[in-house]
């Protein structure tokens, strides 16, 4: 098994607010992240594919193809967006790093795994260099 990782970056804004909480509760739980105007990050996304290299090409998956999937599924949706309001997959959710990483997993898994060559192994999303989340499928 060989693991292949591709990195892309996107910049986006978000805010944390749960409408079921009181204003005080929102501030207590989410702190600065509750600012109603939002704030932004330069996110770094690392997508890892696991698989056996095709003996004809020597590749687990054509990087051009992976690049295209990441552009269409992730960057076109999330880059330079306000995540709470402009990304349907995050609507009604608190767009924490955990939540965004899980949404990215769900967007990518069917696009990658249906090909029958290479499986999505890990989504790693950095909100800052000191805070990142790994998302892995069941049983990994």
């Amino acid at each position: 098994m060989v693991y292949l990782t591709r990195k892309v970056e996107f910049s986006a804004s978000h805010l944390y607010h749960n409408p079921d909480f009181s204003p005080e509760e929102n501030r207590r739980v989410f702190g600065k992240c509750n600012n109603p105007h939002g704030h932004g990050h330069n996110y770094v996304l690392e997508v890892t594919i696991a698989g056996e290299p095709d003996p004809r090409t020597g590749m687990v998956l054509d990087l051009k193809e992976l690049k295209g999937i990441l552009e269409r599924e992730i960057l076109d949706r999330m880059d330079h967006r306000f995540l709470n309001y402009e990304v349907p997959e995050l609507a009604g959710k608190i767009p924490t790093t955990e939540t965004i990483a899980m949404a990215i997993w769900q967007l990518l898994e069917p696009r990658i795994n249906h090909r029958g060559q290479g499986r999505l192994h890990r989504v790693r999303l950095y909100e800052t260099p000191d805070l990142f989340v790994d998302c892995m499928g069941n049983g990994q």
Binding site: T97, A101, P129, D130, L131, V133, G137
Partner: peptide
Amino acid sequence: MKVILHRRYR
């Protein structure tokens, strides 16, 4: 789905 949060301190 397994989710792991990483945080770095110095």
